[in-house]
Design a binder for these strands. Structure first.
Lengths: 224, 224
DNA sequence: CGAAATGTCACCCAATTGGGTGATGCGAGA
DNA sequence: TCTCGCATCACCCAATTGGGTGACATTTCG
């Protein structure tokens, strides 16, 4: 796809301190990809070795070119960033991935870091910060910008939802009544109400409408 | 801010058919700006004369450089794209603006076109389409890509909300009960219920939760 | 093993919500 | 002038929802 020069195997032997950082750019927006490529190529000591426009492509290409660092968008059609990171790190546990997202939703950040990303940047950050993070992550650090770290703290203060609570929440956001949620999950209506009670407490809302809005606001469930 | 060469006044006299298309790029994401600049500079017959990172800056710079075409993001901190387009076209009714957005929400598209944009593109479109639209719009056409036009049709099939209905909807999404909505809008609870009834019908939902989700889904109200 | 978390269900009761019907006043436009 | 849409309010009634309390089984974990 994108021409990448002859590369030397990153495993074994001599440290790559003096080598150029080989970056894989993953984003489904062509102009954004173009910008990230321009950004990286404008920096000394790093270069783009390949591009991908969704998760599956990213996995394939990663195996081929085995880049030093991946710059990965989160929301993409088909396979998203999180699944791609999981797949890549399953096969290459040392893979270094920086998530670059439009959104600073606490759940997104949490899921990304959970899946093994080394950092999480926002697209409204200056290009210097993106470049310096690529260097840091390549050097083995895993740092989060202040505002992102703060969001992650927010999320940790919110109580974890159980699997069943998530199910109810998702069903709720589809516009279903308690009765409908019950039958869709094959449980009694009382059980639904029971889950809703704890759900309201955990999300700190009074009713289902508040729960729906909070869930969307924090990225706990995604629309569409 | 950004260097722009000597420019000739776009008013009066000779047609600019043979001149280069002078583009102003407005986006709050540095790497996206970088990509758009690279995109435009890579195309023959057009060039970037200035960049802005929010609505206010866009207005200022527009007056200074009076570009042929503006490539404008919609959601930006501070003043958004719609307000900027309105302000620019109030002073320069012939201003040509292409909105370039991440989202294909019908309300966003509607508001953008309503405010006077000539086109609405999505960031996941290929760079050729973006470039060719710049040319078309500069030549005086105002065309919408198929998928965007279809979304706009969706929106026109949904009944218009009245101002008051919007007020109730916004209040609803803040998590308020009917009683609280009533007092926040200084009307009776019965009136709130009355508005909600028509609101449910127009949005084709059964209850307030559905209304909240639909409103967010279509961009009728924005979170945060 | 015992404790804690999770998922399940039941019952009661009050509050909120949603649906139907209708009425009034006001301003814009045919 | 006379509609028509909009906003306002009222009343009634049924359905849904939310809060409190408690119980039981399973699983996980120290």
């Amino acid at each position: 796809m994108t021409p990448h020069a002859d590369f030397t195997a990153p495993s074994m032997g001599e440290p790559d301190h003096e080598n150029i950082i080989r970056v894989l750019v993953v984003d489904d927006h062509p102009p954004m990809r173009m910008g990230l490529v321009a950004l990286i190529k404008s920096q000394p000591g790093m270069d783009v070795v390949a591009e991908a426009s969704d998760g599956e492509e990213a996995i394939e290409i990663y195996e081929d070119v085995q880049p030093d660092v991946v710059l990965m968008d989160l929301r993409m059609p088909g396979m998203g960033g999180v699944e791609a990171i999981l797949a890549i790190r399953k096969k290459f546990p040392n893979a270094r991935v920086i998530v670059l997202s439009t959104y600073d939703l606490d759940e997104d950040i949490h899921r990304a870091m959970q899946s093994g990303a080394q950092s999480y940047l926002l697209k409204d950050m200056p290009i210097e910060e993106i470049a310096s993070t690529i260097r840091s992550v390549h050097a083995g650090d895993a740092l989060l910008p202040r505002p992102v770290a703060e969001r992650l703290t927010e999320r940790s203060q919110r109580e974890q939802l159980t699997e069943r609570e998530r199910d109810v929440l998702e069903s709720l956001i589809k516009g279903r009544s308690n009765k409908e949620i019950a039958s869709s999950l094959c449980i009694s209506e009382d059980t639904v109400k029971s889950h809703l009670k704890t759900l309201f407490a955990k999300l700190r809302v009074r009713d289902r409408t508040g729960a729906a809005v909070e869930a969307i606001r924090h990225g706990i469930v995604h629309l569409k």
